[in-house]
């Protein structure tokens, strides 16, 4: 097991290297010039050139790439072209809101979607099953920002229960933290709930038709025991896989959700950086997201062993 983890961790190195090369090259080729944005309309072409030189943007591709990689290897992600702040500082400032949003969404989604999927499978063909599937279709179809605006309109503007926007750090108290995040988490969680509920239902239907389930019933096991101990545990591997894959959905959805609810997270940092062509920030954040995704996949692989003892690394 330990050797497997080490192998997998080492395997992330070439993956990250490819991501780094890809991101850097893409930004190098993309149109846009931060020096022109900084200089503004009154600047002369000489001013723009001078700013470009001061930012090191006039250096050849390989020199810039080499310098960036060298700095990354020394734990330095560079300095934002615009804010003059270290990229690591900017990421630190933004990581808590995004992590909070993703964790709360994950908890909400799993705690709603899994029972929903189990229920739909158990009551297959009934009105409950159809209602769950209808909800799933809705969750897939309605964009995050529409759900976000609707929730803000109802719960903030009309009922005045919750704030429209913003983020309060967890250190300022659980309830202030929760009141700012609950609507974004529900908005972001919609598609995730739909995905997990559908997979849970499909997998559970397959498992519920297995011989050992019939045996459990014949032995007189209760419905709850059959569903959650015998069936769900055996259906868990594909569900956990989907939960892991869904992290990418969450990262993408967080960009929109953070904009709609004005949450100062990594998603908005990425969008702002892209619009301004703040290359060091874009590179830093994309690299971080890639690393998180690789790490989540590793964790998912390890979690398999908890549900299926036949899996050994």
């Amino acid at each position: 097991m330990f050797a497997y983890v080490v192998r997998r961790v080492l395997a992330t190195i070439p993956v990250m290297a490819i991501v780094a090369l890809f991101v850097f090259s893409l930004l190098y080729l993309a149109p846009g010039d931060p020096a022109a944005v900084i200089a503004g309309d009154q600047a002369t072409p000489q001013d723009v050139e001078r700013i470009r030189a001061s930012l090191g943007l006039d250096r050849p591709y390989l020199v810039r790439f080499g310098s960036w990689v060298w700095d990354i290897l020394h734990g330095d992600m560079g300095v934002s072209i615009f804010t003059n702040l270290p990229v690591t500082t900017m990421i630190q400032q933004r990581i808590e809101p995004t992590l909070s949003l993703m964790i709360l969404t994950l908890i909400l989604a799993v705690s709603i979607a899994v029972p929903m999927g189990v229920l739909a499978a158990w009551k297959q063909g009934t009105i409950i099953d159809r209602a769950v599937m209808a909800f799933a279709v809705l969750g897939f179809s309605v964009p995050v920002f529409v759900v976000g605006y609707l929730l803000a309109y109802v719960f903030a503007l009309e009922l005045d229960w919750l704030p429209v926007q913003g983020y309060t750090a967890f250190s300022n108290g659980f309830f202030p933290w929760l009141e700012n995040l609950i609507l974004p988490a529900i908005a972001l969680g919609g598609v995730y709930i739909a995905l997990i509920a559908r997979i849970t239902r499909a997998t559970m239907l397959e498992v519920l038709g297995q011989d050992y389930i019939r045996t459990a019933r014949a032995k007189g096991a209760g419905q709850g025991s059959i569903l959650f101990l015998h069936a769900l545990k055996n259906a868990a591997v594909p569900i956990v896989t989907v939960i892991g894959i869904g992290i990418a959905l969450l990262i993408g959805g967080a960009v929109v959700t953070e904009s709609v609810f004005a949450i100062p997270g990594l998603g908005r940092l990425t969008v702002d950086a892209i619009l301004r062509r703040d290359y060091p920030v874009i590179q830093g954040v994309v690299l971080l997201f890639s690393f998180v995704y690789v790490l989540v996949n590793l964790l998912i692989d390890l979690v398999y062993t908890l549900f299926d003892p036949r899996i050994r690394y």
Partner: peptide, 18 residues
């Protein structure tokens, strides 16, 4: 200065006295 990139959010925040 509270940065709100989304105009609908800023409008709602103003209406909600945030």
């Amino acid at each position: 200065w509270r940065i709100m990139p989304d105009p609908a959010t800023a409008a709602a925040a103003l209406q909600n006295n945030e």
